[in-house]
């Protein structure tokens, strides 16, 4: 998951509302010059650090470029993309990204919803719980992954020591395919559950109290209230978290990179936990094939567009059906 993923939310909060003022016969540009001045830095930075790299990446992806000789790029058209589609490492990474994405996102959001619901009760010391939940999010990925990497160690890891103590066999967490993906999902879940729970909690507090009172009068249990008042009230928020988590899942990079523990970029001895993000890094910066890496980056972008578009469509159909 990347920091960039919470951008849409920030942007929507930061969008300045137009203040009512005297009508003047000046052009809109002059009238709103301060507004433009205030948003300009963002768009200048966006153009430099997002739009330009974005377009340059597209340009690079149409060339055969070696990291050691960027000037000697050769135009190859769409060859990088067709190579990608016939590359078994790409499909392997896509599969891994999907399974790690599902393994991490589904429990993460379900747990976040449950936690938010609990924290919505007037508990003693709930500020403490709320802050505590956000702590994993504030921890650096590197530090967290290194600690988890040691916990999941095969011979000297705490988790295996625990498993052995209760009579199970040791698990080669890093070496196995499912076990490594599960371990990485645990890191993602640990890091992002609290963050999502706080978002849910904020949305929950906006649900009018009288809806619950009315439901209670009609004899709805707490569970029914949760199901028929809370969840429908949270639907836009849930969609938002699903979209953000999906983007984060497709871009997953730091955790699988650091999970190997020795700086290799191949995502395990059988590439068993190589994600698309890590594959891109491996292609570009370990194996010097920048064009290939750029094509992978664009493929990731297209995947994100398709998946997020799918969610949006689903939400719209759902909303229309209910109307």
């Amino acid at each position: 998951m990347t920091i960039a993923s919470d951008e849409p939310q920030v942007a929507s909060i930061a969008a300045p509302s137009v203040l009512p003022g005297k009508r003047r016969r000046t052009s809109r540009l002059t009238r709103n010059r301060w507004g433009y001045a205030y948003v300009a830095p963002f768009f200048v930075l966006f153009a430099c650090f997002s739009l330009y790299p974005f377009l340059y990446t597209a340009w690079i992806s149409l060339h055969d470029v070696d990291l050691g000789d960027v000037d000697g790029a050769q135009w190859v058209g769409l060859a990088n993309y067709s190579d990608l589609l016939s590359n078994e490492f790409f499909w392997n990474a896509a599969r891994n990204t999907l399974t790690i994405g599902v393994l991490s996102t589904v429990p993460q959001l379900a747990m976040a919803l449950g936690l938010a619901h609990l924290l919505n009760y007037s508990l003693r010391g709930r500020t403490f719980f709320r802050v505590a939940m956000l702590l994993p999010y504030a921890t650096s990925i590197a530090a967290a992954t290194l600690v988890f990497g040691q916990l999941f160690g095969r011979d000297y890891g705490l988790i295996n020591a625990g498993l052995e103590a209760v009579g199970f066999d040791r698990v080669d967490w890093e070496g196995g395919s499912w076990s490594s993906q599960l371990a990485i999902s645990v890191i993602v879940i640990w890091r992002w559950t609290g963050y999502n729970a706080l978002i849910y909690l904020a949305a929950m507090q906006a649900i009018p109290e009288d809806l619950y009172e009315a439901a209670a009068l009609d004899g709805a249990s707490k569970w029914k209230q949760f199901l028929h008042v809370t969840v429908p009230g949270l639907r836009p928020t849930i969609l938002f978290t699903i979209v953000v988590s999906t983007i984060g899942a497709v871009q997953l990079f730091g955790e699988p990179l650091l999970f190997s523990g020795n700086g290799t970029t191949n995502g395990g001895s059988s590439n068993q936990y190589q994600t698309l993000g890590l594959l891109m890094y491996d292609q570009g910066w370990t194996n010097f094939h920048l064009g290939q890496a750029a094509a992978t980056a664009w493929a990731m972008f297209l995947i994100i567009l398709v998946v997020v578009g799918g969610w949006a469509l689903l939400a719209r159909c759902r909303a229309r059906a209910e109307r």
Partner: peptide, 18 residues
């Protein structure tokens, strides 16, 4: 021992005489 050189487990194995 099937270890990955310079990984965490490899380092621990030195300390534990693995």
């Amino acid at each position: 021992a099937g270890l990955t050189q310079f990984g965490d487990e490899w380092n621990s194995a030195f300390a534990n005489g693995g």
